[in-house]
Simulated assay, not measured.
Amino acid sequence: TPTSSPTPLPQGQVQASVLNLRAGPGTQYESLLSLQRGMLVDLAGQYNQCEWIKIRVEGQQEGWVKGGDGFLTFPLACANLPSGTFRPLNGSLLADTRTRPGMGFLSLQNQTSADALVFLNEDSGTPQLAFYVRSMETFDLSGIPNGSYQVFVARGTEWNGDARAFERLEETLRMQEKLVFKSAAGQASLWTLILRTLAGSTENALPISPAEFPPLP
């Protein structure tokens, strides 16, 4: 049975004398290599209305370059370039509605094979904290205000920064117990959470539907 193949994206041409190819859409990501003016590259996607462009060099090396005609030109309107996926840096805060920091501390160890979006939702509705923990890495979050927090976890790959979601979602979970943070007399709560995969789900967590996962503000 014949099947349709996606139309390949056109090529772009480097305009800057030297253009850094980075591991993600931002100057905080490591530089993978330097591209020279005049080089032709394959387009692979964009982020934040073409502020950054995802490309492939010689069909193999993939990364991100700064957008704009002074850096890269291509014969395609930005609206016709799909969103590119990437891995946010470990510990990236994707939501933070704290009006002022507290003294609580949370250490999150992701011992699973997929990256994780971790969401702390306070009973009162605010503040809300969401952060990204890469597979097999740890992130320590300080400054958590006093309160009782429900913890939600989404695990997956291929993070879409424009949609603020995993394109390949493996599971969504809700921790069975709430985390209570309180401080007094110079002492504060310290919690450690370890994400492990057991029989298809994370220990001490309940599977939930993606619709039950809190939306990022």
Rank of each mutant, 00 (worst) to 15 (best):
P88W: 01
N160P: 06
R100Y: 07
Q11N: 13
N204C: 05
N20S: 15
M103F: 12
L72N: 06
V41F: 02
S189P: 08
A163V: 04
G161T: 06
L120E: 07
N160F: 09
S92P: 01
V41N: 05
Q128M: 13
G59S: 11
I208S: 02
Y47F: 14
Q61V: 15
R100S: 15
K178H: 07
L93Y: 03
K182W: 00
G125E: 09
R100W: 08
E30N: 13
L198M: 10
T172C: 15
L198K: 14
P25N: 13
Q111H: 10
G12Y: 10
D140W: 00
E203D: 05
Y29K: 01
P145S: 05
L129Q: 00
G59Q: 05
R174H: 01
K54A: 15
P10N: 11
P145L: 06
I53E: 02
K182C: 04
A163P: 00
T157K: 04
S113A: 13
A130V: 03
F105K: 14
F119W: 14
G63K: 06
N146Y: 00
L89F: 03
T27C: 06
R56D: 09
A77G: 07
T73N: 09
W64M: 11
L141W: 01
L33D: 09
E58P: 00
A79Q: 15
Y132D: 00
G26C: 09
A116T: 04
D123H: 11
S107H: 11
S17L: 10
Q176V: 13
N48G: 05
L9G: 10
F181K: 01
I194E: 09
A130N: 00
S148Q: 15
T112N: 07
R196C: 13
P127V: 03
G84C: 14
G91D: 00
Q150M: 03
G186P: 05
A116P: 08
L141V: 01
F86Q: 10
L216E: 03
M136H: 14
S124M: 13
